[in-house]
Design a protein around this nucleic acid. Sequence first.
DNA 1: TTGCGGACCGAACGTTCGTTCGGCCGAGGG
DNA 2: CCCTCGGCCGAACGAACGTTCGGTCCGCAA
Lengths: 218, 218
Amino acid sequence: MDAVNTCANSSCPDDIVAECAALMAREGYHGTSMRDLARGTGRSLSGLYHHFRSKEELLYLINERGFSSLLANAARLRDAYRAQPPRSREARAASAALLCDLIGAHLGYFGSHLNEMRVLTFGTQPMSSAHGDAIRALKLRYAEIVQFAVGEYIAARRAPAASDEIERKSYLLFGMMNWIFGWYSFDEHGSVEALAEEIYMTFTKGCAAPRPATTQDA
Amino acid sequence: MDAVNTCANSSCPDDIVAECAALMAREGYHGTSMRDLARGTGRSLSGLYHHFRSKEELLYLINERGFSSLLANAARLRDAYRAQPPRSREARAASAALLCDLIGAHLGYFGSHLNEMRVLTFGTQPMSSAHGDAIRALKLRYAEIVQFAVGEYIAARRAPAASDEIERKSYLLFGMMNWIFGWYSFDEHGSVEALAEEIYMTFTKGCAAPRPATTQDA
DNA sequence: TTGCGGACCGAACGTTCGTTCGGCCGAGGG
DNA sequence: CCCTCGGCCGAACGAACGTTCGGTCCGCAA
């Protein structure tokens, strides 16, 4: 008789989660059946149920692991930024570096987990309230870090922006980064690093900004 | 004996399409059943089938009408731009106005057809090849107009950009505009017009650009 | 060697899916 | 007056859905 654990099933191997995410990335959560997942992972239908309790828990696992990883990277970058001595004359460069690093981390994780990210971005909706709340909390904490960086960047360059303006601008940045799932392919559009640089430049300087040989900000 | 028409069923009233789009916007195409649509539109299950031949044709109708409308607006703006006498000293202002108007038209249509737009942006995938090709063609023509505007804007301000850079920058712009579906609500985030202005400014000047009282470009 | 537990499977459960069929009804032209 | 026809419906079809159950296999500790 197990204690009912309404939260995570941490015993599920990462590779199964990743394979299922790859399959769900094509047709979405509702469009991919458990039988599709069984066939795609070379397992039987009932064999899958030894690794997670339900299809919805699988969706939760994909989301939970993805956002936890993104959040850990972002929190590390923010903490490093905060640990710097606050010399005001370097505030512009430091806030620019934080923003640039966050964009690079987001797209970097994305580059190596493209399938999971496709699932993450399209649809927290079909999750139960308990799981949905946990994922929304992770998303919120992640978004707060990006908003902090955007706020710091703007504050170092002009009068600090109101929190709702920072929120909207951060959403625009997320839009640029996440919309990539619809069109990016390595062969056609170059490396993820170059794309991160282009997003950083477009978001901070506008689309007509010249491309520098190295990232330079002043 | 009808001639088999593999394409549109133009006899379906707009309001039914709009109601179905509103329902599909919540849980997506696969997540919304024909019974959900019947209940939601106050009709019977089989009654729906007198307006379209299949669920997939309904998805096609939502996409076809939405993108046709977007495309018509965009083409009108582009033609007006091209009809202007090419006085080079006004090229900067004219290309800025075109870009600003296109963003305004995209978000304006969006503001009055939010539910349809949610369906449009998430998923051309589950469509048959015949329908899918038709929608992809509409999307392509629409994207080409936006790319034209981005190219003109950049060319009027610095050395013309390569076509692949214009393509990427246009995708970033689409990302800012379309990601809105995930978070926008009129009550919290103000009018669509103000948001269009903010996207235009961020895309052209960067996130730290000051907000002018009126749109001014030089 | 025996016993155990986790990984895995085939077969089936009840439900819901998209779609079809035959018939009802009320407005409108002859 | 009747007849037609488009809009609409209840009931049902076979297929596919998520999930469960009993059993098989195999590595490993005792």
